[in-house]
Design a protein around this nucleic acid. Structure first.
Lengths: 356, 356
DNA sequence: TTTAGCACTCAGGAGGAAAGAGTGCTAAGA
DNA sequence: TCTTAGCACTCTTTCCTCCTGAGTGCTAAA
């Protein structure tokens, strides 16, 4: 059933007011809004109906109304006005991103911090491999007394290295031989196809370096198998306590705990596959502990089979418009950054700074 | 002035009781302890004196006593009984550590998680270089169309790599030339001595690859300069909220915030240089925000010029004996692990499992 | 269809009394 | 001289109760 325009307007106003004030909204407050040309009694009737329809809830008889999960859902999907980032906001996000980020996991960490700071909420950041990874190239570098460096160039263009120490002396020639054997037999092979016969083949071809092969292959296998979500990072937990709904320590703790635990590993499953920003309102959420909490997440492309995800966690009452806008901007900026790593371009935006 | 044995016994009992109960301790509670053979009145007199001496405090007239910072200090330095780890505890710590930890920063992360779990408090973990770092060896590996991998073997035996993409084509010969130039001119040179003339020398010797030199040298310099504390990690913040003193959200938030911020960068300065476990009681602490909080830290050796540090943050009332015991055990285990990476030995302990 | 008015509900704060915990002091006992 | 029992006193905490005010739903009039 479609809502009347007026009902939508009332609902939107209530959610907006509730987002700012964190307190149940009464009919009078709504009636006093500048462009609301009805009396509180009229609003009251509308509110009663919206409550009956399940979009609003009443904490108790004589309190105002609070949006229900369904109410938020509607708000997020249809009612909320676009939040335009101000020039200042885009600028500070952009310069933050431009700081070069070296490694994958450092990136995840930094992005999480920036997002958390930009939204004043705890943030999640994650980077994961998509699809199957293989080794593009093996390199072995002698590093002195019985140790060498193994360098793997992966199909994702990640470079992984490991210093391997062995009790026996290793010669340059041995390493060359082993390197050739590995590059011949084990490149472009996914983890699933690392069979015993592959091990045997490498060891056969490696001649005097055969004894080194197992260590190298084990490490390679481990690297290729490493759980898809290479790194995940949560920061800014303390910002949760800024939110009035988490002045209740128990509530706060439940949420913080489930952020700390591996609950978040499930997050990817919940996220729809499309790109774009997605809002998980309260009960739609990953973990039961998060049922009074909303999660806003966005995916972005890192290129080369890697996918990134950033998100924030906050009260269902959070300012979806603002949070969504900032997250999207982040995601967009990051995608562009990775698309053309040489010429760090950032999306144009914020020409007309104003808030909605 | 030395305290009488009885005063010490009373003080210890009060701290112990307060640690368990988190509530001011009255004379009656102390008198009722199994091996306390005095009446509450006697205890009361002792308590009055201990209060006058500054070891105890009274929240208000009719509450029991609470240890003052000086009281905790004395407790930690002299009174607390050794906490013997139970067999179960040592075992679970040991197996946790035995899981191999790949990279330095992963290690820091894992250790922090384990410590936090073992102590039920937020934990800090940190690994940092000691002294000056240099490059032991440069390697450049061709990686296809205009990109190559730079591999640095540092004096700490860390291996750092970076995939460098350049607009121009790079030839194998160029890389060889550049590699030779780098190894000749820039190995064993600390960051402080990366002068312009060194840049010039490398570029001169690199011939046709001269244009690649600056990128490589810049990255090297950055790596060598990277702040001593390579990685720092804080986890388990949510456990702080378990402690009754942090049911006060504002207090909790202040502490969490200062954990999140870079306040911790100062930690190394505060820590005495000796090894061993150190307790920072309340006001002795790093940041003003932590004045109602204690920090227990231990250093451990990672070898090769790297130093590790683990610690926990909790209420001044925390169970120092237990926390100290667990931290020390962790540190000891980790040191041993790094001393002989091949034969993972763990310290013997917990033969006689019992709590003090 | 909208609005004014009114009776009703209920959370939250203020005030006050009572309970309970703990103290310090005094005087008696070992 | 040291220890302990007893008691008056202090102060927090808890539990009432009462009151206020915000907000509602309903009815009747515009």
């Amino acid at each position: 059933m479609e809502l009347s325009e007026r009902k939508k307007k009332v609902l939107r106003s209530i959610v907006d007011l509730y987002i700012r004030g964190a307190e149940p909204v009464g009919s009078k407050a709504v009636a006093e809004l500048p462009d609301m040309n009805y009396s509180s009694a009229t609003i009251r009737n509308e509110m009663a109906e919206l409550t009956a329809m399940g979009y609003l809830e009443q904490p108790h008889t004589s309190a105002g109304r609070v949006p229900s999960a369904a109410g938020y859902r509607l708000y997020v999907d249809e009612l909320m006005s676009d939040y335009r980032l101000s020039l200042d906001e885009t600028r500070s996000i952009s310069t933050a991103i431009e700081e070069k980020m070296q490694r994958m996991d450092k990136l995840v960490e930094k992005v999480a911090k920036m997002v958390s700071q930009a939204t004043d909420l705890p943030a999640i950041s994650m980077a994961s491999r998509q699809g199957v990874v293989t080794v593009k190239r093996f390199d072995l570098i002698l590093a002195g007394q019985g140790s060498f460096i193994l360098v793997l160039l992966l199909s994702t263009d990640e470079v992984v290295n490991k210093l391997i120490k062995l009790p026996l002396e290793v010669s340059e020639a041995d390493l060359k031989l082993l390197g050739a054997a590995l590059n011949a037999a084990a490149t472009l092979i996914p983890a699933g196809e690392f069979t015993q016969s592959l091990f045997d083949r490498v060891m056969g071809a490696a001649g005097s370096a055969a004894s080194l092969a197992p260590v190298v292959l084990e490490f390679t296998l481990e690297t290729l198998r490493r759980p898809g979500n290479t790194s995940i990072m949560v920061t800014g937990q303390h910002r949760l306590l800024d939110q009035p709904e988490y002045r209740d320590v128990d509530k706060a703790q439940r949420v913080l705990t489930s952020l700390d635990e591996e609950t978040l590993a499930n997050l990817p499953d919940v996220i729809r596959n499309e790109n774009g920003t997605q809002v998980l309102v309260g009960p739609e959420n990953v973990a039961r502990e998060l049922k009074d909490t909303s999660v806003v997440v966005t995916k972005f492309d890192i290129g080369d089979g890697m996918q990134g995800m950033i998100g924030v966690v906050g009260p269902t009452r959070m300012d979806y418009a603002k949070v969504t806008a900032r997250l999207s901007y982040f995601a967009e900026s990051l995608s562009k950054l990775f698309a053309k790593p040489e010429q760090k371009q950032l999306p144009e935006s914020g020409e007309d700074p104003k808030e909605a």
